[in-house]
Amino acid sequence: MSGLQPYSSPAQVAWYYGFRLICALIFIFLILPILVIIPLSFNASDFFTFTKEMLALDPDGYSLKHYNDFFTNSDWQTALANSVRIAPMATLLSTALGTLAAIGLSQSHVPFRGAIMAALISPMIVPLIISAAGMYFFYSRIGLQGTYWGVVLAHAALGTPFVIITVTATLVGFDRSLVRAAASLGANPVRTFVKVQMPLILPGVISGGLFAFVTSFDEVVVVLFVGSASQKTLPWQMFTGLREQISPTILAVATVMVTVSILLLTTLEILRRRSERIRGLSPG
């Protein structure tokens, strides 16, 4: 089906190339919007589109002024600092709690497993606007609205489903007899966990943690409601920037963030390969 044979009919040859062309167009649709902002972020003028100078590859058409603005403007720097303060704490919370729960859920006898799973996954299913509204009302009542910890707790709750899902998936391939072997050799449960189970499921834990990190780092809706101006994060600043005063600095920020996601993607890919190699799933 996939290969082109010497005996293929002209129609088959035409379809073979036609299909690849269609796929190429879809790939362009997927990737072009992300790539197009990178050159635009070096625009020397304050436009959101390619200027004549840029198309002529004139060096005067390009500049780093939007990056300069991002790194010197106090609004953007505060937002960046807030994002950097909130996301790791939320990640830490959701990864620690999520990993423990995933280990618990993967035991063979768990009462009410279905109901518990549904409750723990719910932050992923409920639309963000509903979560945001509920948290806004509830956190105002208990005095968490507009505080650093309010945002951290909210983001941690949103990130846990991803940790649970990835760690549970890793635990499926985990050989339980290793735990028993460790116990039979005299290791206590904590030691067994630290020395045997944890190193084996670590790739799953790290990729779950990355998911939780991205969830928090990329989150706007909840922080808009639960946070106050002093918790303004990078996505929040971008959102207001896009809605009110469109400035090309956003494109520079976007480029920086694309670079960060490329780094994340690479890390995850390395982890996935490592995990597959450990479990003997792929020859590589």
Binding site: M238, A254, S261
Partner: peptide
Amino acid sequence: LPFWTSLLV
């Protein structure tokens, strides 16, 4: 890559 890129981007 699009999957991992920020929604706002």
